[in-house]
Simulated scan of single mutants.
Amino acid sequence: MSRVYNFSAGPAALPREVLEQAQAEMLDWQGTGMSVMEMSHRGKAFVSIAEDATTRLRRLLGVPDNYSVLFLQGGAAGQFAGVPLNLMGSNPRGDYVVTGNWGKKAIKEAGKYGDPHKAASAEDTNFTTIPARDSWDVRDDAAFLHYTPNETIQGVEFHDTPDVGDVPLVADMSSNFLSRPVDIEKFGVIYAGAQKNAGPAGITMVIVRNDLMGKPQSGCPMILDYQQQADADSMLNTPSCYAWYICGLTFAWLEKQGGLDAIETINKRKAAKLYDFIDASDFYTNPVDPAVRSRMNVPFLLADDALNADFLTKAEEAGLSTLKGHRSVGGMRASIYNAMPEAGVDALVDFMADFEKTHG
């Protein structure tokens, strides 16, 4: 069976090399006579897997020693609660910049645990822009400022890290994590669900500055307590062992590509190919302000919505899978994460051009 080009927003495509290595090691991981899925998380074999993955992630991102790297469960949505529960222990004020659906969900969840404040919102533009930094209403005494560097649904991305002074910056990086270099020291907390660029669904990476741990709200569950998880090496309970293993393979694959500088160059090139084609077309449009277009998630509309179903059917027949846009936005969406090869973007552009010729 030939593999399709999978443009799913998540769970998303994984590198073929990673899948092939996992396949080869499925029944017997490095002579242990068992699958990673069967190992005790306390055993020497899995501990070595976890330590290797953690070391590789630290190396890829240049994580300083005064930050902890956690591999947790509950998805990024779990961290919508985890962030306020850990950072609002002595100060209930959390500021939020809302640039799409995930930012809306994050601030709503935070309302259960403190006093979240909408410092800025792009809802008045249907989340097709990012409010200018000088328009943000950031409280000097806020416990943190939370934002979403890339909104998966709307296709809006910050291309620079916002300066918020001494207020700890918190980022839900789920959909552009590991797609480019990041200056970790500009952040208090970074969290990301694995299922876009790092591995399969079921595990979430949290990178937290150590001085922000150890002061949670009294009602914080132990499973969400950053300090307890750091002290237990992310193993307060049985972790998502297989997902952690696949993440480690993906980190190794990224290193083989040349690291985050190299993958960013590729991602820029892939996105430019698709956006340049859309912008040159009278048949396709992208609704997002060009200055803040996402490199990871490219929404686009056809000139006639009545053609959407035919476009999707023919795309699937051509081996281009999962291009339907989110129900709240409509149209199409091509998610072109790290594992999407340039050949996949080329194939999509060629298909779109042919479809325009016959239907435009």
Rank of each mutant, 00 (worst) to 15 (best):
L57R: 06
P181V: 09
D304N: 15
L87H: 04
D183V: 14
F71D: 06
F7G: 06
D261M: 04
H146M: 12
V206C: 06
G259I: 10
M332L: 13
F187M: 12
G82H: 08
N338L: 05
I207W: 05
S335L: 02
A122K: 13
A132H: 08
I184H: 02
D134L: 05
V18K: 02
I223A: 10
E316R: 07
A13T: 00
D163M: 12
P64W: 09
Q257G: 04
N176E: 10
D233N: 15
D183K: 15
G94N: 02
G325D: 02
L301F: 13
I266F: 00
A243M: 06
A142I: 14
R133S: 12
D225K: 01
M173Q: 10
G360S: 02
D134G: 01
A315P: 00
H359Q: 04
A309C: 01
M173H: 04
R293L: 07
F277C: 02
V4K: 06
A143H: 01
T129K: 08
S40Y: 06
H41A: 10
D124V: 13
L301I: 09
A232H: 13
E356R: 06
A243P: 09
M340A: 01
Y191I: 10
F355T: 00
K270W: 03
L302C: 02
A272G: 05
T125Q: 03
V47Q: 10
F127H: 13
G31R: 12
A262L: 09
A201C: 11
P15L: 09
V292N: 08
E255W: 02
V18N: 01
L70N: 03
D211K: 11
P162Q: 14
L249R: 02
H117L: 11
E151K: 15
F355Q: 04
I130A: 08
E51R: 15
N267M: 13
D95A: 11
S40P: 12
K105E: 12
Q228S: 13
M1L: 05
A142E: 12
L169R: 15
S321A: 15
V69I: 15
D137M: 10
A347C: 01
D140H: 11
T129G: 03
N338I: 07
I266K: 01
G325C: 04
A24D: 14
A122Q: 12
D261K: 13
N176T: 12
A353T: 13
V18Y: 02
R58A: 00
Y284D: 12
N91L: 04
E157D: 11
V69W: 03
R56E: 11
M213I: 02
R139N: 11
N150L: 12
H159I: 08
A243D: 14
P162E: 14
P216H: 03
K108W: 09
D282V: 00
D279V: 02
V206A: 09
A106Y: 07
F283G: 01
L61I: 05
W244Y: 14
R139V: 09
A12D: 07
F144T: 01
N86D: 11
D261P: 00
L224W: 08
K268Y: 04
R209E: 05
H41L: 07
N197D: 14
M222G: 10
M88C: 15
N308Q: 01
R58C: 05
M222T: 15
